[in-house]
C-alpha cells in the first residue's frame, strides 16, 4: 500500500512536470502563443454567447428549464476542454508513436508506459477556454436554479466530473489502442470522436432506448449528463450505482487492452 501511494505521488509530480513542460514549450514560440491565447479568448466569448442562445430560445426539454439546460451545456463545454486539452492531443499522437516506433524510449522508463504515452502533452489553450467558459455557465445556471451550495452538492458534482474524466479517458483511448494491431486507426477514431457531440445537449432529447444504449452499452451519455443530473437531484439509483462502477470497469478493460496491445508492439526499423 505504501509503495502504491509512493508511486501515485511520483506519477502526480511527473504529471505536474508534463503540464509545466507543455506550457513552457508552447511559450517558446511567443507570437504563436499570444496569437493562440487571443484566438481562444475569441472562442471563449462565442461559447459564452451560448448562454444568450439558451435563454432567448426559451426551450424546455422533458421538463428541463433553460437554466437546467445551461447546467448541462456548461458541463459539456467544461469537459470538452478536459478531453481536448488533456486527452485528445495525446491520443491522436499515440497512433503515430506506435506506427513510427516512438514508444521505444518510453517503454524503458520506470513509470507507467500508459501514463507516459497518453498523458504527456497538455494544450493550455484548448483546455482553459472551454473549462473557463463551462465553469461560468455552470455557475450562472447553479445560481439561477437555486441549487444549495453545500459540501454534498458541490463535492458530489465535482466527484461526478472526476468520474466523467476517467470515463472519457478510457472510452476514447480504447479505439486508439487498436493501433497496436492495425497501425492506422484514424477512421475509427474519427467515428468515435464524433460520438462526443452526442453530449452537447441533455440526453433527455433522445428516445428511451437510445438513452439506455448511451448509458449502459456505449456509455457516452455518462460523461456529461451524470454530473448535472446529480446536482439537479434527478439521478436514479441505478445510474448512481452505474456511475460508481463504470470507471473501474473501463479502467480494467483499458489496462487489459493496453497490456495486450503492448505485447504486439513491433516498434519500427531504425
Amino acid at each position: 500500500m505504501r509503495n502504491l501511494l509512493r508511486e501515485l505521488k511520483k506519477h502526480f509530480l511527473i504529471y505536474i512536470l508534463f503540464v509545466k513542460n507543455s506550457i513552457m514549450a508552447q511559450m517558446e514560440y511567443r507570437f504563436n502563443f499570444i496569437g493562440n491565447l487571443a484566438m481562444e479568448s475569441g472562442y471563449l466569448l462565442v461559447k459564452l454567447s451560448y448562454v444568450m442562445v439558451v435563454y432567448r430560445s426559451n426551450v424546455t426539454i422533458n421538463g428541463l428549464t433553460p437554466d437546467a439546460i445551461l447546467l448541462f451545456i456548461g458541463t459539456f463545454v467544461a469537459l470538452t476542454g478536459v478531453y481536448a486539452g488533456m486527452f485528445m492531443i495525446n491520443m491522436y499522437g499515440l497512433r503515430n508513436k506506435i506506427k513510427d516506433g516512438d514508444l521505444d524510449i518510453i517503454l524503458t522508463k520506470p513509470v507507467s508506459v500508459q501514463f507516459m504515452a497518453t498523458l504527456r502533452q497538455v494544450d493550455l489553450g484548448l483546455f482553459s477556454v472551454d473549462v473557463i467558459a463551462g465553469a461560468v455557465m455552470v455557475i450562472i445556471a447553479w445560481n439561477r436554479l437555486g441549487i444549495p451550495v453545500t459540501f454534498l452538492t458541490i463535492g458530489g458534482y465535482l466527484g461526478f466530473i472526476a468520474l466523467s474524466c476517467v470515463v472519457s479517458y478510457c472510452l476514447f483511448l480504447l479505439p486508439q489502442i487498436l493501433s497496436f494491431w492495425l497501425m492506422n486507426t484514424s477512421a475509427i477514431a474519427e467515428i468515435t470522436d464524433s460520438f462526443w457531440d452526442f453530449n452537447n445537449m441533455p440526453m433527455d432529447i433522445y428516445t428511451n432506448w437510445i438513452k439506455q444504449i448511451g448509458v449502459f452499452v456505449l456509455p457516452i451519455f455518462v460523461i456529461t449528463n451524470f454530473p448535472p443530473m446529480f446536482a439537479l437531484g434527478k439521478m436514479p439509483p441505478a445510474y448512481m450505482a452505474w456511475a460508481l462502477v463504470l470507471p473501474f470497469i473501463l479502467l480494467a478493460v483499458v489496462r487489459a487492452a493496453w497490456s495486450k496491445g503492448l505485447r504486439s508492439y513491433s516498434s519500427a526499423s531504425s
Binding site: A25, Y29, I105
Partner: peptide, 18 residues
C-alpha cells in the same frame, strides 16, 4: 528499468522545444 539506460542515435528523448 531503474538500472539500465538506452540511447538510440535515431530516437530522441529530449523535449524538442525546451
Amino acid at each position: 528499468k531503474m538500472q539500465f539506460a538506452i540511447v538510440m542515435g535515431q530516437k530522441a528523448q529530449l523535449w524538442w522545444d525546451l
